[in-house]
């Protein structure tokens, strides 16, 4: 059975101090830390492209696995901030890594739900066509489209990339996938003319009202109870959204993982960055992954540690 074998990541070195940025709007440090939940954000170099970040995540995965990974069958990149409109980023990554011609490449255009969709799309695709190893990359640097004067977005988003190896000897397998959409005609989160705009209240309402039902459906599909979940890996939208979800679903807050304080909301990379840490923890048997955001799109699934 195919599943997640390993995850590598790339975190840019540049750190932006949100306390300093927040002074512009007289925001208190405690509001930034506890409500926004992002004390500092990672930002890529100005000349660093999405494909460069993807390559670095792939190289981190190579280093972690100890294999060159030239034998993979497929390479997928999840992004909505590509190097160019045409061609697809995964093709550029393929070229920069010098992978064999036999490797299939395609991109998936999704934001914060992208990792959960990507994981299930890739595993399903590989199983249906008889592939055995593939890599799923997330790289969606919002710094490309953030207006530095926009308080709603500039304090929130960070840049990062991850690379997940899918193969026949997994640590985690997936099940119980549930996805859905609430087609965003209200422009809750939109990038027009190269600038991101976000209606925080619409995004908050979407998450607060949609995600509890999604989690319940996922648990039902996987025949699990809330208590059987060792950790909830929600998209790291903001500290406030994570607190709201925990409160509305009456979850044990210690099971709701947080990883945005020193990184930011890294869009489709936020869940795999958390998952990368969980892989090493043998006690984490059953995880619930849940991505939600731009689209408006959501997706959730269970990751089950494979018994040895």
């Amino acid at each position: 059975m195919l599943g997640i074998e390993s995850i590598g990541s790339y975190l840019p070195q540049n750190r932006i101090d949100n306390h300093q940025v927040g002074e512009r709007w007289e925001l208190k440090p405690e509001f930034i830390d506890s409500k926004i939940g992002v004390t500092e954000r990672l930002v890529k170099d100005a000349d660093e492209e999405t494909s460069d970040m993807a390559v670095k995540a792939f190289e981190a995965l190579r280093a972690k696995t100890g294999h060159d990974l030239n034998d993979i069958d497929v390479l997928v990149v999840v992004t909505q901030n590509p190097d160019y409109n045409i061609p697809h980023v995964s093709g550029l990554v393929h070229g920069k890594l010098g992978l064999p011609q036999s490797v299939s490449t395609f991109d998936i255009s999704l934001g914060c739900s992208g990792f959960v969709y990507g994981l299930n799309i890739l595993i399903g695709f590989m199983q249906s066509v008889g592939m055995s190893r593939g890599v799923l990359i997330t790289a969606d640097p919002y710094s490309k489209v953030i207006d530095p004067e926009d308080k709603n977005t500039v304090l929130l988003f960070g840049d990062a990339a991850t690379a997940t190896l899918i193969g026949p000897d997994p640590v985690y397998t997936t099940r119980g996938f549930v996805g859905g959409s609430q087609g965003d005609l209200k422009r809750a989160l939109i990038c027009e003319n190269g600038t991101l705009e976000m209606n925080g209240r619409d995004i908050f309402n979407f998450a607060a009202t949609s995600i509890p039902g999604l989690v319940a459906q996922t648990l039902e599909r996987a025949e699990l109870s809330l208590e059987e979940i060792d950790a909830f890996l929600f998209h790291q939208g903001s500290g406030y959204i994570l607190d709201t979800l925990a409160r509305r679903m009456k979850l044990d807050p210690t099971k709701v993982l947080r990883g945005l304080a020193h990184v930011g909301n890294t869009v489709s990379s936020s869940i795999p960055l958390l998952l990368e840490q969980e892989i090493a923890k043998e006690c984490r048997k059953t995880l619930l992954l849940c991505g939600f955001g731009v689209g408006l799109s959501y997706a959730s699934c269970i990751c089950q540690r494979k018994e040895k």
């Binding site: 409500k35 925080g200 908050f204 406030y240 709201t244």
Partner: peptide
């Protein structure tokens, strides 16, 4: 009450009253 907590209040009032406050 800050701007984010205001979102929570508006949502709670919507859910209780059935009146859309968007």
């Amino acid at each position: 009450i800050d701007s984010l907590d205001t979102y929570t209040i508006l949502l709670a009032l919507e859910e209780k009253s059935g009146v859309a406050l968007e």
